[in-house]
Amino acid sequence: MLWTVMPLEAVLDGSDSYEPEYFDVPWNDGGRLIVEKLNMDSARVVRLISGNANDYLDASIQPGTIIQYAPKNQASKQ
């Protein structure tokens, strides 16, 4: 139940059409980050799932934060 001063048609506008893709990324010891991919080397944190409450104090993984990924060097793995 929403209780807001904003008109509900403005708040809920576009809720039917917006379908971004999300991915799971392992985080720390058993935790997970749900991220929205932005491009090949960055993603936005959408949600943190962790049993360690202190993880939620980590500003670098708060929802909305952009995280960077290291490009994978396939040749070095072989």
Binding site: P20, R44, V46, Y69
Partner: peptide, 22 residues
Amino acid sequence: RRSSSARRVRTTPHPALQEQPK
């Protein structure tokens, strides 16, 4: 630029995102 929460979540990581964050 938009932010939102998970509506459709893949259970397996996308190949481009399999690396741990720096």
